[in-house]
Design a protein around this nucleic acid. Sequence first.
DNA 1: ATATTAATGCAAATTAGTTGCATTATAACA
DNA 2: TGTTATAATGCAACTAATTTGCATTAATAT
Lengths: 137, 137
Amino acid sequence: MITNHLLLLQKKGFRMTQARSSILNLLENTDHPLTATSIHKILKRIGVSTNITTIYRELEFLLEQKIIEKIPLFDTELHYEISGRTHHHHLMCTSCGSIQNIVLQSEKGLLEEMHNISTYDIRRHSLAFFGTCPDCT
Amino acid sequence: MITNHLLLLQKKGFRMTQARSSILNLLENTDHPLTATSIHKILKRIGVSTNITTIYRELEFLLEQKIIEKIPLFDTELHYEISGRTHHHHLMCTSCGSIQNIVLQSEKGLLEEMHNISTYDIRRHSLAFFGTCPDCT
DNA sequence: ATATTAATGCAAATTAGTTGCATTATAACA
DNA sequence: TGTTATAATGCAACTAATTTGCATTAATAT
């Protein structure tokens, strides 16, 4: 499938390759952040044999292009997700590791307060909740 | 220096060692989260030569004892800080990597909303802001 | 078709974190 | 004050995550 992101990249002079399109496709059709190794495994399972190095390089490239975002969570591995979706946060089960997206209505005040008290040029934030999911309780 | 945490551990039957007391002391007197390697470097600099393995093991132990907390931030390395301080969040400069603590008044509504919409047993959350600090602008 | 160079694969290196095992040292107690 | 039990340590080797160099392949413009 050829997505808007892919067309945009092509317009900028970058190439449309199997690795690029399948990684993009996977991230676009997954509703929670993925790690490099999980992307690697999923692609292998569906018959796209891509080297793990390529995945790391592609993720770095997509980050630079601001097509994806880095999500710091509780473990050592970094997670990635498509940017530009409805603004949301994450809820992670510390028992099974599953991650869910959450949309919160009431964060406006928090961000305002933050911008008032800080002299930093704040570009983004990450908010994650940790607990046990119903299945693991 | 012998701290309350150390005395509490002694009361529980754990020993007071140089590694334990210096790691605890460092975390207690630092106002931002530290990584295992940064702890290692700082201790070396002040003349406490502790093996990095010991630091990892001690951090794991202090986590189990709920004396410290794990802070997921933007980079690959995990950060740790003393628990039980005034509830706060973090502001990280993506240019120089410095981290600052932030106390926000207006997060109550957010947490209430979160507990209302979720069926998870939520134990903690982490909120971090990322941007450029005045020095790096 | 061909040329340019972006993208890839492989191997090797680096960095973060973990594990096994023998040794050391803290603290309890005879 | 010694003796003892075992918590804590150090070292080496290991695993997992990520990065780098370099030669090769392949996407696109001409």
